[in-house]
Design a protein around this nucleic acid. Structure first.
Lengths: 189, 189
DNA sequence: CATCGTTGTGTACACTCGTACGCATGGGAT
DNA sequence: ATCCCATGCGTACGAGTGTACACAACGATG
């Protein structure tokens, strides 16, 4: 019926592809690199994914799904009564200091979508879904989108300029953009 | 003394390189593509730029300088008495609708900096300089950085999700993050 | 048990790329 | 006028790529 020998083969290849993208970037994604990482022969990658684009999309889809799951997990677990800017600033810090590679991955996706039309829906979904998950914490949808934009921009600054993460500054900015005054946090400066 | 035959040759190559990046992205940058675009022989590009990296850096340096000049021109021309959020929102709209390719170029630079260490200073300079130029319009440096972040994030959303530019939403978000209330604009919704 | 088709593999081909290198060219010094 | 060398060019080479394709292995079907 299904694949006979190695039903997980396809998934392993996708996992390997995400690992390759993580380590070498999208430009480093190639059949051979993936095959080596997945410990499968070269022909296996071309068998499961006719073209390299398919493989790229599959990998980025998974990266995206993982990321959104992470966001969802956090967003649904956060206390709605707590000052949202505080929570957001702390969470972002955890992401940036903890698993920086994952964030880089997500921005790889964004930038790839800039040129690769087939990736736009994925990037758009990521943006929309993140904003949707944030609506619990902010007044309205437009604000949620603005918050997403701010976080993306801040992340970019940390990632690109190796700037240290200043939680208080960021908390204040988030608080302002959420429409409240910046002083309702725990330790207003 | 200097180059004898074609003193502008080097500059023409850089111009061609930026054109190539504009049209095909950084991945599309190659000696042959640049040579064709500049209408010079292949050997000429390798003569003036020993390695492809040199060429890429030269191109992105120029792209960056052009962009910063554009920002500077605008920032110094804007009326400091006018509501800054209005001005910013309008200007950003002009950039996004008018010369979208240039913005994509700037984000190409960001993208490259994510993986290419030698480009980080360039990206950092872009971020810092933009923030510095904005200090005329905002209360302090931290706010300027936040404004830059917000604009970057918003731009990303427009570019990636093909979302229409909603000037009023963006004006409101900018106004909030600048520390004033969002209602001091001209046409608060 | 024989046959067939699905699944998986190894190899080879056509192609592009960055770069090196030998050769042309023409101005400046003597 | 002659020589020299910085400048510029065309080509060729080795490496690496995506993909096609012929073959192997193995379960299902009669």
């Amino acid at each position: 019926m299904g694949r006979r020998y190695d039903p997980e083969r396809r998934q392993r290849i996708i996992d390997a592809a995400t690992a390759v993208v993580r380590e070498r970037g999208i430009v480093g994604l190639g059949h051979r690199a993936v095959a080596a990482a997945a410990d499968v022969p070269l022909g296996s990658t071309t068998y499961h994914f006719a073209t390299l684009d398919d493989l790229l999309i599959a990998a980025l889809r998974q990266i995206n799904a993982e990321w959104l799951a992470e966001v969802k997990r956090w967003a649904e677990g956060v206390d709605p009564a707590a000052p949202p800017a505080d929570e957001l600033a702390r969470w972002l810090e955890e992401q940036l200091t903890g698993d920086r590679a994952r964030m880089e991955l997500e921005y790889e996706l964004y930038f790839a979508a800039l040129r690769h039309e087939g990736l736009r829906p994925l990037a758009a979904e990521c943006l929309d879904e993140t904003a949707r998950l944030l609506t619990r914490l902010v007044p309205d949808a437009a604000t949620a989108r603005a918050v997403v934009a701010l976080m993306d921009g801040l992340t970019l600054q940390v990632l690109l300029a190796d700037r240290p993460y200043d939680r208080e500054d960021i908390r204040a900015a988030l608080a302002r953009i959420m429409g409240g005054n910046g002083a309702n946090g725990s330790t207003a400066g």
